[in-house]
Simulated assay, not measured.
Amino acid sequence: MLRSNRFGRLACCVAVTMVAPQAHARSPDTLLQPTTIKDWRAAGMDGTGCFWSPRRNGPILFAAAGRTAVTKVAGRVVVLAPAPEARELFPFTHDAWTSDRLTIRVMDSAVVRAMGEETVTTDAMLIVTTGAKVRRMRGSLICGS
């Protein structure tokens, strides 16, 4: 899913991030902001993994590959590591992630909504915890190579 193509870009995710500018607006209760290929690259992400979006062809608010996950909060890239209790979500990634002040749990429905040659899309909820505040966000989880 997050594999580089011959142009040095993360191929499957490029089309997903090219949406209308208004699609990148955050709702007031959403902490996470859209991420970009530049953010993923800065975190050293490449290879098989998953990304989460609040809607089909919407902004990518969370991406995970291997033992690294990335999101953006208040304009800053946040790199997360698997939480101690994390279980395998998809080969090469996990269902729970943590950083200093942020925890993200991926609740995958396992109901397949779309399937491509190398990807699968399911309904999934992100449970985002910062301090005592918990946000639940419904959207799509796209996993593959």
Rank of each mutant, 00 (worst) to 15 (best):
F7P: 00
L2W: 05
R3T: 12
D39R: 03
T36D: 01
A42S: 14
A86S: 13
T98V: 14
S99N: 05
A43Y: 04
A25M: 09
G58C: 07
G75V: 09
T98L: 07
T103N: 06
L89Q: 10
L32D: 02
S99K: 00
A69N: 01
K133R: 15
A132N: 11
P91H: 13
F92W: 03
R76P: 00
C12N: 13
A25E: 14
R3M: 12
D100K: 02
T122F: 04
T93D: 04
D123S: 10
C50I: 07
G75T: 06
R105Q: 07
T122Y: 06
V70T: 11
R56A: 15
L31Y: 02
T35L: 05
L80A: 01
E85N: 12
L31D: 03
G144P: 06
T119W: 09
G75S: 12
R6N: 12
R3A: 13
P91S: 10
P34R: 02
V16E: 11
E117P: 04
L89D: 05
T130Y: 00
I127P: 01
T71L: 00
I127C: 07
V77S: 03
V79L: 03
L32G: 06
I37C: 13
W52E: 06
R101L: 08
V16Q: 11
R3C: 13
A42E: 12
C13M: 13
S53M: 14
L61W: 02
A63R: 06
H24A: 08
